[in-house]
Design a protein around this nucleic acid. Structure first.
Lengths: 244, 244
DNA sequence: GCACCGGTATGTCTTTTGATATTTCGCGTC
DNA sequence: GACGCGAAATATCAAAAGACATACCGGTGC
């Protein structure tokens, strides 16, 4: 058994994007938390079409939500970065309508869905936060849907790169070599509704124009302005962002 | 000014899909409601990229949420049927990241977002309901994303028809001639990320195999089982479904 | 009756994207 | 240093979807 972090010292707390909790909220969250979950890259966090009684906050690392069709076609619904919450939809659907898989080693906090009522009744502020987080997830999926439905392959790829870059930036994950991008071209293809080959072609085209550089899993954007214009990217202004 | 319906006599209340409120909840909702909004088919309910302080429950009629790119390409994010709630995402994004347009004459209840805190603190149960509704919306968008990203044109169209049929069915909207489907082929195209021409061809193909009939805006499914198999449709079991 | 209009249907041709196969590259392991 | 392996890169060919043009069809208004 690993030693678990006290919520009072949650690493998310230290990031300035996230709005702080009151000491009472923190205490409740800590007590509400069932356990921590540590996984390795490639591990399944939530199995597709299984049942799960839990709610997950990704505390560190990358993961993604996906659905597969019976013949193996896979659609990545969105990428999860630190602070993202998943599992609320099971409250609606009964069983888990999608799978979640880790892209890097990742740490998650696990909460019991059957005690959600406690949370709403004792800390309405946290109830509001859950709604916020749910709406935030939907916003991202909406954006993906616009990409996949109406953007060209070039625009889609540009969009994905800019979007992930920006999300990482907000979390303070931009380093010397840009951001760490722990995904393969297959992941990009599955997120954008493209074939692997066409994804490769399109990436090559963007790289050929010097719009991005990828070395060893580290992404740097060569011409952010132009990328944003291609992608027609509109940043969502991040105000105080809650987390659980 | 039209005369407004008292929430105690809300038509949604009468439908058995929706779980009932306590009298106190109903009283609060009635007092919380800012006003009713009645629109005609084709009217814009929420303007894209504008600001809106409101939350909307669609009480009757059909509508859809959409986003457009600068050159006019439009993606329909999802169709709204009675009981659907929209506007929560503005809480996250600041301004409205999408537009909402009526497909039929429609009635909506308008709630002030700036009094949401009241709702969460005084009626945690309603706070929970809002989260539920938000998660429900996301589930639908997820499904659309899978369609647009990974299903073939034929599968997509089948999926859309089955999905809308089933959603109508749950609401008790199946009549003698099937369900009322107040959308044009252009709407289908924009929802599925297809061109108008290709949508038409695909519809023709489905109709040719006797899988559906459309007369005068009324949809009947000829071979529901086969349609579901083509679409790989998995119904979400509807348990007690909340509304506001 | 006829022009008009939105929506539907179709034919023809072009472009984009996908499928398949093969090669290359980077990297860890023996 | 040779081998193996997953990912990336490319070439060739095929299929799916889009663009454009045009026709049709059922209302509406004059």
């Amino acid at each position: 058994m690993r030693n678990e972090i006290d919520c009072r010292h949650c690493p998310l707390k230290a990031m300035k994007v996230f709005s702080p909790h009151t000491p009472e909220e923190t205490a409740f969250i800590h007590e509400f938390r069932k356990r921590e979950l540590h996984v390795e890259a490639g591990d399944t966090i939530v199995r597709e079409a299984a049942t799960s009684d839990d709610l997950y906050t990704l505390r560190g690392g990358w993961a993604f939500r996906y659905r597969t069709l019976s013949d193996g076609r896979r659609q990545i619904l969105n990428f999860l970065l630190p602070g993202d919450l998943t599992g609320l939809q099971q409250e609606v659907a009964g069983n888990t309508p999608y799978g979640v898989e880790a892209l890097t080693a990742a740490q998650l906090c696990v909460f019991p869905r059957n005690r959600l009522w406690d949370l709403y009744s004792r800390f309405p502020s946290l109830g509001y936060d859950l709604t916020w987080l749910s709406a935030h997830q939907e916003l991202i999926v909406d954006e993906n849907l616009v990409s996949v439905g109406r953007r060209t392959a070039l625009e889609r790829v540009a969009m994905l790169l800019v979007h992930l870059y920006k999300r990482s930036e907000v979390l303070g994950l931009v380093g010397e070599r840009g951001i760490h991008l722990p995904i393969t071209q297959q992941h990009i293809a599955d997120a954008l509704g493209l074939s692997l080959v066409h994804t490769n072609r399109t990436l090559r085209r963007l790289a050929g124009e010097g719009l991005y550089e990828l070395d060893n899993g580290h992404l740097r954007l060569g011409d952010l302005t132009r990328m944003q214009r291609i992608a027609e990217y509109n940043a969502i202004p991040v105000r105080g962002r809650p987390f659980l």
